[in-house]
Design a binder for these strands. Structure first.
Lengths: 146, 146
DNA sequence: GTATCTGCAAAACATTTGCAATTCT
DNA sequence: AGAATTGCAAATGTTTTGCAGATAC
């Protein structure tokens, strides 16, 4: 799923279709991923959602995200060691991480690499393309400072 | 550096040129990375080298590898969460991880992505391409079992 | 003898696990 | 009630840090 404003009923249906019982917490966490396209970490999700649901525990977020990963409705991004990030957009696309501000951007890249079935005799099931550098925003800031 | 059998004197020179004082441990660790092109984790390096140097500590391996990363003579691969792997070949190339046996292979891929300077307004300094799937060896094994 | 290098032990994190409490139907 | 869900607290595993001792020049 990739759009930003999806009605709750539709999310519910989507979870059910994916074999996931749409409990309140699961719904809220998936909704959060749809709304916040910043590839959040567990920490970020916890910080934000627990403002509205103070009883929510990190364990539940871990449980839920692992469930989502198993059912393949989110992607796990390991663009940087020691922080797993999550993306509700499971279509092939690339990622860009800014080494200045840390933000991870989606990059809509059409590459034949995503279509490849084999490489050097290995059978490919997943392809991840990660870029690092300075993002648009940080570049602008630096220019202004000069 | 990318070849497998490099004389120690040459490694020493390479470290010096990179601004690294070539202590015995550093030499041995870099030599290990050159010889073992399996993108080892700290654990693997420790296990193997400490057989010959029983006094070697993991802290030293972490210190040394972080030094190598800073001086950019090794690449850190975060193809899978919870395990940072190291590669002494800093030329642009892709990586393939077998989801059956866990081995990480180098893939000699010529892609224009490695040459890109900008994408969607972001300035690119690094490009990582990761594949996952079943490797050549594991595919063969599966065929034999049938 | 002063810098650097090394390594222990503790700390800092992220993530997982066991199990008990809670909720849903 | 019975099954699924949640959440605390403890365990696990990786990496970092503080600092003291060893080594090198």
């Amino acid at each position: 799923m990739s759009k930003e404003n999806v009605p709750v009923a539709e999310i519910k249906e989507y979870l059910k279709r994916s074999g996931i019982n749409p409990s309140y917490h699961r719904l809220r966490i998936f909704e959060y991923l749809l709304k916040h396209r910043t590839h959040p970490t567990v920490e970020m999700i916890y910080k934000d959602i627990s403002k509205e649901i103070p009883t929510l525990s990190k364990t539940t977020i871990y449980n839920t995200l692992n469930l989502f990963l198993n059912k393949k409705i989110v992607l796990g991004l390991t663009i940087e060691e020691n922080e797993l990030r999550y993306d509700s957009d499971t279509r092939p696309h690339a990622h860009f991480k800014c080494i200045a501000c840390g933000q991870v951007y989606d990059v809509d890249l059409k590459s034949p690499l995503f279509e490849r079935q084999m490489i050097e005799g290995h059978e490919i099931t997943e392809c991840h393309i990660y870029f690092k550098g300075i993002c648009r925003k940080c570049l602008k800031k630096r220019k202004l400072q000069k």
